[in-house]
Design a protein around this nucleic acid. Structure first.
Lengths: 357, 357
DNA sequence: CTCGATCACTTAACAGGTTAAGTAAATTAT
DNA sequence: ATAATTTACTTAACCTGTTAAGTGATCGAG
């Protein structure tokens, strides 16, 4: 198959010229007259010639490719396909290929498989998706092979692009407070192994504390349990909370539909109107909506993360791999229809309490 | 950067041997004694040597890479990231790299950009994600450059992996009918440019017709309008249907949450109980759930699509690009909690009608 | 009519690896 | 003790495309 691929020499033989002439002709070198160029082009087309980029790379010393290294399936990273799209957009502008790591379903905690990949990938630089806080070993490996790398969605003061979760969560909680809410619940049901889990909660808690309120947090226990609630468990949990005498007037969740919708459904099942009787805020890479009800959303600019990471890497490649200050992107609030004041105009004084299920 | 990359010669010079010795040593050739191998390995590690796969490719005539060509952003294909995961799984087993096309946000109807990609990519074969029915021009281009290719999610009798939508939709509708439903609504709100749009509806309609019932279809008009309903429009539409005197007892939708949840919300807002008063069936690559209510789902085996496509391509590469019969995968039904008989035990005779909003 | 320039090429060398063929020294067989 | 073999390498050639440095033929200028 590949052994019968057409080369410059094949075209040259067919036309009775040297392969160098063909090379120059295809690149419109001034020394080749238009007549010849045309003959060469025709022959190339006829023979289905594809230039061998390996041969090119070998001289230029560049691969014209960057690698995307996933530490786990992208569906679990909270960024995913739109980040890839952002990367692709930038790479397209610069005529670079994207090589993806062959990581499939499972979390690749086993860095022992990495060395081979890093060694044999033939890319000019790396974009590394890594969710944990301390990629020390990974970092060491990358350094060892002298590959310029940018961390995507990973906290680091240098060479990283990530999201600020703390401030937006603090801010949105403050805004709910200033609207008159006091019984604001923070809930999570996800297994996300990501620093955002701590930061989002901390942002919420800071706003509550500053307002003199006790935070009210619903979070599956980590890491003893599976860290993952089943759909029915999520709904049951929400129903318990929503049917109590002092139910929340607002719910802010760590995640998207999975986290926030149980509260919507529970509220409706209990005869509440949403929007109206309950404020809801979730997180997603787009505008959350539950069956047409547009939920207030802290939007993650996933595509921008990709774009920024790709641009940062290209800059590093130009600058011979010099360190770059990290880029931190904010979440932006889409108010939807569920960013509402508490139903009762009365702002009851803090009776929030803290629960962990 | 790249120009200072360590080569076999660098290692050879350092050790005072020829680069060939180093080459053999690193590949544990029998003629190199263990002592030397070890010295070479140490030096390689120390110098951060990475073998240049371009140089390898150039001799072997293989790139050890396959290309994934997206005609549009994967988020729009109805397959997406899990299909990629399936592909990665298989490629990892065979030690192949995956090169992705630099297609970002917009639909690439413009095939004029393709030739360059196809020519200069340096992959051994292609997996082509293409949603439309007639990839004639694309096909011609791929043929021209003699690249073995497998079509993903595209109908073709040869060299394709795709989903059978018609039969599962017919079957699920039949099952609803046999449970006593007669007012079964088929609804779509999506812009999906995909053959599945026609097939799913056709499967539904066939079952209805065979039962002597008029199909009842709610579908945004194509292609005159934007082909996309806003969230509020979806809910409003569902509310209109659900508040009519002869509301459906079951709703089957083309898509996932966006399509099906408006009916759940509308029903609840109108005081109906779900599950119980309304059967709901949607489509997704996993089990649909709306806030903890597990919706009946026709599950798309997206990861299997990826796995099958990758395996098919590998087989083609082995067989010198010979044609392979297509693989058709079925949707499987997860009944969840909304695959229920009509609330009234009474099976009213067909009064279904047909509407297009 | 000759000299220099221009044209349209060709030859040579190179990049980093793989593979085949060759070689000197050490070891074993007879 | 000498021939045959094994060991541990080296040299040469090759893969495909790029680039620099020729080269012979044609052309225009003086």
């Amino acid at each position: 198959m590949q052994s019968m691929a057409t080369t410059l020499r094949d075209i040259a033989n067919k036309l009775g010229v040297s392969h160098v002439t063909v090379s120059y002709a295809l690149r419109n070198h001034y020394s080749i007259p238009e007549r010849t160029r045309e003959r060469v082009r025709m022959a190339a087309l006829e023979l289905g010639y594809r230039p061998n980029s390996s041969a090119r790379s070998i001289r230029s010393g560049k691969f014209s490719a960057i690698g995307v290294l996933q530490a786990q399936n992208l569906a679990f990273t909270g960024l995913g396909i739109w980040t890839i799209a952002g990367i692709q957009e930038v790479l397209m502008e610069h005529d670079l290929r994207m090589v993806m790591s062959p990581v499939a379903d499972s979390r690749l905690t086993d860095t022992s498989a990495m060395p081979r990949l890093l060694r044999e990938w033939s890319v000019d630089g790396l974009l590394v998706f890594y969710n944990e806080n301390a990629p020390a070993e990974m970092s060491r490996l990358i350094d060892q092979y002298r590959l310029p790398a940018v961390w995507v969605n990973t906290r680091a003061s240098k060479d990283a692009v990530y999201i600020d979760d703390y401030e937006p969560f603090k801010e949105v909680t403050k805004r709910l407070l200033s609207m008159g809410h006091s019984r604001i619940l923070y809930a999570s049901s996800s297994r996300a192994y990501h620093y955002s889990r701590a930061d989002r909660r901390a942002g919420y808690e800071a706003a509550m504390s500053e307002a003199g309120l006790l935070p009210w947090v619903l979070e599956p226990e980590f890491p003893s349990g599976s860290g993952l609630l089943l759909p029915q468990e999520r709904l049951a949990r929400a129903r318990v909370v929503m049917s109590g005498p002092r139910r929340p007037t607002a719910v802010v969740t760590y995640g998207g539909s999975d986290d926030i919708e149980p509260f919507l459904i529970a509220a409706m099942q209990l005869g509440m109107k949403v929007p109206g009787d309950l404020a809801l805020v979730g997180v997603d890479d787009g505008k959350l909506d539950a069956g047409g009800i547009e939920l207030a959303t802290l939007c993650v600019p996933t595509m921008d993360v990709g774009r920024n990471a790709a641009r940062m890497l290209l800059k590093k490649l130009d600058d011979d791999g010099a360190e770059t200050p990290s880029v931190v992107l904010p979440l932006t609030l889409f108010t939807g229809s569920t960013f509402t004041p508490p139903a009762t105009g009365k702002n009851e004084f803090s009776d929030a309490f803290r629960t962990v299920i």
